[in-house]
Amino acid sequence: MDVIQALKTTGTCRYFDTAPVPDEILLDAFEAARFSPQGGNRQPVRWVVVRDPEKKRRLRDWYLEPWKAYLAGIESGDVAVGALPKAVVDADHFAEHLHEVPAIAVLCAELDGLHPTDLELDRLSVVGGGSIYPTAQSFCLALRSHGVATAVTTLLCHYEPQVKELLGIPDGVITAAHIAVGYPARGFPTKLSRLPVEQIAFGETYGTPLKQS
């Protein structure tokens, strides 16, 4: 698959088929994703693939608590979202049926392999994620090339202690995301809704349009 086509059609899947994803496809995606860039080539990312029905149900139950609280905020108007009503309905279906997804890949990272350079700034630290999330995107793109869909979520990070205990994740290792993996029940999108490039890419100063020379 052409990489540009993959980038433009790897959206968040909310409806999954129940057919299992073969080990060889998962391993091929992990093989490709491990070449993603990360600071100092420390390679901090680790994965736990969850297929056990009871473990998936536990993850679903934990996921539902923060999701339903967020959903209540949307319905009351206390939480403003740019998503269309259908997208919220789809996300609720995903939450309710998370345990039915064929596999959940838990994205982990060794803390010793991260080197955030923004800890002293008066804002949320995000730099450490630069050594984690490129690998997640590469994993999703590699699966897309096999016709396998994904949904990346961070809501379960609210329950990191419980997830770590459930999956035997050791001290010094964090959870950074959970990725639902399976064949799409409704196919892949042909066009994703995104801001036009004129609103996100600037030249020399923030807000100045980037123009072709």
Results as ranks from 00 to 15, higher is better:
residue 210 L to A: 12
residue 190 T to I: 00
residue 208 T to E: 13
residue 20 P to I: 03
residue 127 V to A: 13
residue 42 R to A: 15
residue 202 F to Q: 10
residue 24 E to D: 12
residue 25 I to G: 00
residue 142 A to P: 00
residue 36 S to G: 13
residue 117 T to L: 14
residue 207 G to P: 03
residue 31 E to P: 09
residue 121 L to R: 12
residue 138 S to R: 07
residue 205 T to P: 11
residue 28 D to G: 05
residue 26 L to T: 05
residue 115 H to E: 15
residue 79 V to G: 09
residue 200 I to N: 14
residue 184 P to Q: 01
residue 81 V to M: 14
residue 12 T to C: 05
residue 69 A to E: 04
residue 190 T to P: 03
residue 167 L to T: 05
residue 29 A to M: 09
residue 22 P to N: 05
residue 43 Q to I: 02
residue 90 D to H: 14
residue 72 A to Y: 04
residue 125 S to F: 01
residue 149 A to Y: 02
residue 65 E to Q: 13
residue 186 R to H: 02
residue 1 M to H: 08
residue 102 P to S: 02
residue 79 V to R: 10
residue 131 S to I: 06
residue 90 D to A: 12
residue 21 V to W: 01
residue 27 L to Q: 15
residue 47 W to T: 11
residue 160 E to I: 06
residue 83 A to D: 14
residue 104 I to N: 04
residue 26 L to Y: 08
residue 45 V to H: 09
residue 193 S to L: 13
residue 144 R to C: 02
residue 195 L to P: 14
residue 104 I to M: 06
residue 212 Q to D: 10
residue 18 T to I: 09
residue 93 H to F: 08
residue 42 R to E: 09
residue 208 T to C: 09
residue 27 L to Y: 01
residue 178 H to V: 08
residue 162 Q to R: 12
residue 15 Y to I: 00
residue 142 A to C: 06
residue 71 L to C: 14
residue 68 K to S: 13
residue 103 A to K: 02
residue 115 H to W: 15
residue 66 P to Q: 09
residue 154 T to A: 15
residue 89 V to M: 11
residue 174 I to G: 12
residue 101 V to I: 14
residue 80 A to H: 11
residue 179 I to N: 02
residue 114 L to F: 05
residue 9 T to Q: 02
residue 17 D to Y: 01
residue 65 E to N: 15
residue 86 K to W: 11
residue 50 V to P: 11
residue 105 A to C: 12
residue 124 L to F: 06
residue 16 F to Y: 00
residue 44 P to F: 09
residue 118 D to W: 07
residue 159 Y to H: 04
residue 123 R to H: 15
residue 159 Y to M: 04
residue 203 G to N: 13
residue 2 D to G: 00
residue 149 A to N: 03
residue 124 L to E: 07
residue 194 R to H: 13
residue 71 L to Q: 11
residue 25 I to R: 03
residue 11 G to P: 07
residue 111 L to H: 06
residue 35 F to D: 13
residue 190 T to D: 02
residue 159 Y to F: 07
residue 6 A to G: 11
residue 132 I to T: 06
residue 77 G to H: 12
residue 175 T to M: 08
residue 213 S to R: 05
residue 39 G to K: 13
residue 76 S to V: 03
residue 125 S to Q: 03
residue 15 Y to A: 01
residue 92 D to F: 11
residue 170 P to H: 03
residue 140 C to P: 04
residue 4 I to Y: 08
residue 157 C to I: 11
residue 17 D to S: 05
residue 142 A to K: 00
residue 32 A to L: 10
residue 112 D to S: 13
residue 13 C to V: 02
residue 203 G to E: 10
residue 49 V to Y: 06
residue 19 A to M: 07
residue 16 F to T: 02
residue 31 E to A: 11
residue 62 W to V: 10
residue 53 P to M: 03
residue 40 G to S: 13
residue 47 W to N: 06
residue 174 I to C: 12
